[in-house]
Design a protein around this nucleic acid. Structure first.
Lengths: 199, 199, 199, 199
DNA sequence: TATGAATGAGTGTTCATTCAT
DNA sequence: AATGAATGAACACTCATTCAT
């Protein structure tokens, strides 16, 4: 297939995914019809089906693309900064960079995905990437002598991922973002200072 | 209304909720019909509607009841033990005491509940109870001089709740329970020992 | 279930089948919607689905009922009359007793039924009944010494069934009924007189 | 238009019809898409539409071509043989020469064609040709003094055509070919010997 | 001629909910 | 209280056909 056509197809997919995101954000996954999505970009239902097998494939693509660009971001990038500098502000920035509807969509997706092989696969992939990125970052701190060699960086990394996810879920059920950020900050600070236990 | 009738009503509700749990566990919320639930206890659809306004109220009741009995449990009870003793094993025991389908159901509920006042209310309530219980527990530790007075126990409590929730979500998308427990352990240990930062 | 309810259900099924027959006759199977059928008797689509699993089950029931009452008829009944008396007029009477749209519906059904187990089963059952009835009748003629003992009555019976079916098919594609009757008459007469071969 | 182009068109049509036959055989008419057919010969849907007005025209052409080559065959050819020699083996040979999916396709076509002028026309044409061929053949027998002058050869011819069609229909709903051949044989033998009625 | 992206009408089916009995 | 027949809105998905290139 000529390159120009491939590019066209990619653009078409993107346009559809953008429209889908907007509609999902407005009405939620379940109440959004394929027709809604098509109409938003002024095409017919059939056109959407040329690019996405079905509705579930569409939400999958949307979620995947956002996860890649958003969740992966900051914590996974190598850096010279210390643990607390890296983690403390990152969740707040994550929330800023993330569309407000994303946590909602994530819930929808996970609910839809329960018994779907591909969707589980995607979530496993997400887990893998996040854990890999974050633990890599922590390993760097370890090498820098900043973190004890005994720390299981994979466990910590997965814990931080889960914490982010859990806070996103609470936000989507109404927890103010500020409180979520407080919780995140408190956990990472506690981790850094060991809850300041009296010895 | 005489007390005996009230008790009958409560029992009837419980029977329905048990049936609903079982069916939700088997097929998920969306694919479970009200008829499935009614048939499981040998009554008619109409009978179910005598006790629950609608299907969403039913999943709400089921979720609420499980959250009360399960999530609230251990971390909220007053105890003389130290932070690490209290927290370390609690998530593992939570997983054991929780039916394996609960995380799935929670996803379904949260997805369904996005834009539902009552459901959000329920989740806020859950948040409140968990945070209250856990932070109360932490405050006790603070009073016992085990935790620094500077620690924001509410923030930590909410963080731990969110961490549990996030790990449950990962489990429901395929993360082995053992890995989730590892992550939990690593986080609470890190909090206790402050990641052993070199000073 | 009480008898009265069973009777009600039977009546409901019959009403639906009658409506379906009428709509199928008017527009053909494919172009008739379940809604058309429901509206004809002033009920909702859903009501129809209470009595018939799906559209195909509905045409199956209609076809079966007509085959039982129509095709089975005359040739299968024991009689004292001779071969030619029995057969000659029977096809004409069959055509008279059969709604004019039946051959059309039969085509629709057979087309729909190609790869459907139940439908094939039904057609096999029809074949069995017709062949049994007609050959039984021929066996009586044999016993009466009217037909040679060498004749394979089952083969003849199946041939006559197939001939009826084939003529019905021709009629449904426009062959005048009179010509179909002529063909039938000519075949059975020829069979009776052995085409009057010169010896 | 130069002759060579005409030939090209004919060849293209044939290639498409072959592809269509194969796909119809595999999935039936209704479930075969124009795309399936186009892809099978590596062209686009649009190309198919250059040669056939629409899908129905395509099945029409396929059916017509098969009927011409298959059904018409043997019984229509002049021959010196006697009635029984001509007819007895002909159905068996017809079955052998005919692809096993043809009866299915015929059902599909007739169902599709109910209310279609052109299709009915085609079936009338088929009827005409068959009857003409077979009755011509019988007339030859008559002239040879082998068949009584009283026999209505047109009626007999149409009966034999219908018998073939009916047996094909039974075969397509599961009747073993051997039983169909038995029935055919028994009918033509009975016609030849007049069922050996006692006088 | 050929392509294949786009169209959009068309429909079987499901199921939460209601309500007469 | 219980029944279960009836409702009817809701929707994903298909595919024959067209037409700009």
């Amino acid at each position: 297939m000529p390159k120009v056509v491939l590019e066209y197809k990619e653009q078409a997919k993107k346009r559809i995914m953008d429209a889908a995101s907007a509609e999902f954000a407005k009405k939620g996954y379940r109440k959004t019809t394929m027709n809604d999505i098509a109409k938003r970009i002024g095409v017919s239902k059939g056109a959407v089906y040329q690019y996405f097998e079905n509705k579930e494939a569409l939400i999958g693509a949307v979620v995947e693309s956002f996860i890649e660009s958003a969740l992966g971001g900051e914590l996974s990038s190598p850096s010279d900064k210390g643990f607390i500098e890296i983690t403390e502000g990152s969740f707040g920035r994550l929330l800023k960079s993330m569309p407000s509807w994303f946590p909602y969509l994530l819930c929808d997706f996970m609910s839809e995905a329960h018994r779907d092989r591909n969707a589980k696969q995607l979530m496993r992939e997400v887990d893998r990437k996040l854990v890999e990125g974050i633990s890599g970052c922590l390993e760097d701190r370890k090498k820098a002598g900043e973190i004890s060699p005994n720390v299981d960086t994979v466990g910590v990394a997965r814990g931080l991922s889960a914490l982010q996810l859990g806070l996103l879920a609470f936000i989507s059920t109404g927890l103010p973002r500020s409180k979520a950020i407080e919780a995140w900050t408190e956990i990472v600070r506690s981790m850094a200072s060991g809850l300041e236990l009296k010895k």
